[in-house]
């Protein structure tokens, strides 16, 4: 059984009579423990799709199962939200308390955790994101990366199997972004969480097991980063730009300089260039 099974999803924001679909027949499957990046231009349906996975948007058409639970059954909603947590773009919009430990305890209290266990769970969640010791602080005194990690701890506290990052790195500076990416990789590799990461940064997409490319409400390609990110016609057709090393590889090739392989990262690129000289 896959942890997410979506079949033929359609969604419109404009009522049933509308022909303007934000999702147009999405089939999406994800194995437990997979790390999937959703790529696509603004308005291609990435967030709309992701918001189906934890019941933030209701199912209009199609079938969707999260960890075997049918999203259509309202009785499953709480369980689904517990299995699938979501971290958003702007960390400031996600805090409900001015004390970090209270903020993180909120989810646990809602799920009726025994009060005597809550402090330990809060500590565990903060430790997972490298923020242990910040329990009594205010989220508003933190840096962007720290805020986003606290928002993530709030999600992790209820032990979801799937974590969705909806452009959670977009507003962060370089340092904050690296903090979140390291945390994502650690959750994926050490905690075996299933990760869906929505981003516009190609250097982040490189880290995924699989990239699903969206265009106008459809998934137009799905595969490993090495195949998707090096495929210029495909990226162009989805209105995306390649990572800088891929662009440089192509421009060098057009100038008669041939690297052995198309590099995805700056490290791979410089290695290949060294081999030329």
């Amino acid at each position: 059984m896959d942890i997410i099974e979506a079949k033929n999803l359609f969604y419109t924001y404009e009522g049933e009579a509308s022909q303007r679909y934000s999702l147009e027949g999405i089939d999406f499957r994800m194995k437990a423990g997979e790390f999937v990046v959703l790529l696509g231009q603004n308005g291609s349906g990435k967030s709309t799709l992701a918001k189906h996975f934890n019941g933030l948007l209701p199912l209009q058409q199609g079938n969707l199962y999260i960890a075997g639970l049918d999203v259509r059954d309202p009785a499953n909603l709480w369980d689904i939200r517990r299995k699938c947590g979501m971290v958003f773009q702007n960390p400031d919009n996600q805090f409900i308390s001015s004390v970090i430990e209270e903020d993180i305890a909120f989810g646990l209290e809602n799920y009726d955790f025994p009060p005597e266990q809550i402090a330990a769970e809060v500590h565990k969640a903060l430790a997972l994101v490298g923020m242990a010791g910040f329990e009594k602080k205010s989220p508003h005194m933190l840096s962007g990366g720290q805020k986003q990690r606290v928002a993530l701890a709030g999600v992790l506290a209820i032990s979801p199997e799937i974590i969705i990052f909806d452009e959670s790195t977009a507003m962060l500076d370089i340092q904050g972004r690296q903090e979140i990416l390291q945390t994502i990789q650690q959750l994926h590799q050490a905690e075996h969480k299933s990760i869906i990461h929505i981003t516009h940064r190609m250097e982040e997409a490189v880290l995924a097991d699989r990239i699903d490319l969206m265009k106008a409400g459809r998934i137009v390609a799905s595969g490993p980063p090495r195949r998707i990110l090096a495929d210029l016609p495909l990226l162009t057709s989805a209105n995306l730009l390649p990572p800088l090393p891929v662009r440089l590889y192509e421009d060098l090739r057009n100038a008669g300089i041939h690297l052995a392989e198309c590099p995805l990262t700056i490290h791979e690129l410089t290695e290949q260039l060294c081999r030329l000289s």
Binding site: L244, R247, L248, D251, L252, A255, G256, L276, S277
Partner: peptide, 28 residues
């Protein structure tokens, strides 16, 4: 890594030009 390029490059186009100047013609 010992490859001689001007150190003041920080934009894409000058980088491409410098790489073409440095590596062009040697593997054809």
């Amino acid at each position: 890594k010992g490859i001689d390029l001007p150190s003041d490059i920080f934009r894409y186009e000058p980088l491409l030009t410098a790489l073409i100047n440095r590596f062009g013609g040697q593997n054809e």
